[in-house]
Design a protein around this nucleic acid. Structure first.
Lengths: 127, 127
DNA sequence: TCCTCAGGCAACCAAATGGTTGTGTTTCGC
DNA sequence: GCGAAACACAACCATTTGGTTGCCTGAGGA
């Protein structure tokens, strides 16, 4: 099983051309990177329970220091996964589901493309 | 521990401990971390076009060295996103869609939980 | 008012990461 | 059998990351 030969691909001998995923790869890679830490994923899991949480509240769910949590939240905010608003003397963080949707669409595109490739391969083998 | 640790949420209520995500958070965080690099995401995009690709082929699509690509592929393999098989003098890499599906389900669960929380909030406001 | 709670800022640290080059070791083609 | 292709292994390097501590500012409440 080596479909590496350009039988059905119009790409000639060139193996790897950039494939359009969904959103700009750079941006969505940032979302994945932001979710790629257990602590941050846990923070997101807490935040997706709804509402806005302060840093102290979010810290209470982890075993690292408040400043550590702050850094993680900044990473999430930079990736657009959460948004923050200052309210009084505390800063409230909230989930921003749009980027999560972007990431999900990217994963969906990967799955779809893979399935389509499997289908083509099967058709080729059966022909 | 740190003496400056904020003891708990004093006046505020407990932060919701609802982190009922899908798969083991640690494992899926590894998948996100693996996808969280632009080079690796590009490799996955190439691989999801179907079939198995050699390291040299995959290297041709990037602007880093073959050893650099090898390291990225090892990261992807460790996360279970790709699988590799030795064939002759080359090693072929292939997408492993199961873990991608896991990650997608996690993102789906986050989105669903967020929507449910929004719904509850709306119902509460309207009551 | 004064005290305390929540957070911001900065320095610092160890470990991981992303990348390189150099040197073997198989395997294929001639 | 010989040379080149494809890769593995290892050392090395700069930068980023995850985490800490210490100190400072600002907002609320008794």
């Amino acid at each position: 099983m080596s479909p590496r030969n350009p039988k059905a691909a119009p790409a000639g001998r060139r193996p790897a051309k950039a494939f359009a995923i969904a959103a700009p790869r750079e941006a969505v890679a940032g979302v994945f990177a932001a979710l790629g830490d257990p602590t941050r994923l846990k923070l997101v899991a807490v935040l997706c329970a709804g509402g806005a949480f302060s840093i102290a509240q979010l810290t209470a769910g982890t075993d690292i220091s408040r400043q550590g949590v702050t850094k993680h939240l900044q990473v999430l905010a930079e990736a657009g996964v959460v948004s923050d608003t200052r309210q009084g003397r505390e800063r409230l963080y909230q989930l921003e589901p749009a980027r999560i949707e972007d990431a999900k669409r990217t994963l969906d595109a990967i799955g779809k493309q893979w399935e389509a490739a499997l289908g083509r391969l099967k058709a080729f083998v059966e022909s």
